[in-house]
């Protein structure tokens, strides 16, 4: 459906913007390494079904490989910046101070409690949706601490937030057309979108209506 396609395209766009940001500036200014590492973990734990070879569609499989591949590629690019631009890298690390154990621990516990089946694959899947819902927090934390962000960085976060937000009308659509109701995806998706709400508001005010991006 149109919402699902738009969401996935928005997700793709966010990654293209992120790669463009790193490529263009040749540094990692304003990008949280911790958030990016969390995304590698999110995609690797969610797409374990690739190993079972029970593929739903070519589209699905290609996208899964794309998300795993690009998330790892981002880490590689960031590590290159460490060598090329050590001062900027150190500066980023000094500001990337969110304690991710507070995201990993609860996600693991929530996955044990809320899952569709107590199997490795399902537990990892549940862990990945819980973790994804909060994975942006180190990035938002970094942004709010510095108070400023490059335009590309804000576009990246916006596109990334829009992706999960668009999944919500997709779930409503699927509920009516397929009678499908995946409660874990829906709950974590709502949580994820809620975490972006503040950011969306500031983005709308500053970026859409003109002017620079500054957080209080």
């Amino acid at each position: 459906n149109i919402f699902r396609i738009s969401a996935d395209l928005s997700h793709l766009a966010s990654i293209v913007i992120l790669l463009e940001t790193i490529r263009k500036t040749r540094q990692v200014d304003g990008i949280s390494l911790k958030t990016q590492l969390l995304y590698v973990l999110v995609f690797c734990t969610r797409y374990l079904d690739l190993l079972t070879f029970r593929w739903t569609s070519l589209y699905n499989t290609l996208m899964k490989f794309f998300f795993i591949g690009t998330s790892i590629y981002v880490i590689k690019l960031m590590q290159e910046c460490k060598i090329k631009n050590p001062v900027a890298y150190k500066d980023m690390m000094a500001r990337d101070t969110f304690q991710i154990k507070y995201l990993l621990g609860p996600s693991a516990i929530l996955a044990m409690v809320f899952n569709y089946k107590f199997t490795i694959l399902e537990l990892c899947w549940s862990f990945s949706v819980w973790l994804e819902s909060v994975a942006i927090l180190p990035q938002l934390f970094m942004l709010s601490r510095s108070g400023k962000a490059g335009t590309l960085t804000t576009h990246y976060i916006f596109a990334l937030g829009l992706y999960r937000a668009l999944y919500i009308p997709n779930w409503i659509w699927r509920y009516y057309t397929e009678n499908r109701f995946e409660k874990l995806s829906i709950f974590t998706g709502l949580l994820q979108t809620a975490l972006y709400s503040d950011f969306f508001y500031i983005y709308y005010k500053k970026v859409i209506k003109g002017g620079g991006f500054e957080l209080p």
């Binding site: 996935d8 969610r46 569609s57 699905n60 996208m63 499908r180 995946e182 995806s185």
Partner: peptide
Amino acid sequence: STTLLEHDEL
């Protein structure tokens, strides 16, 4: 549905 959901979303 009562069967295990297929995770066909990304």
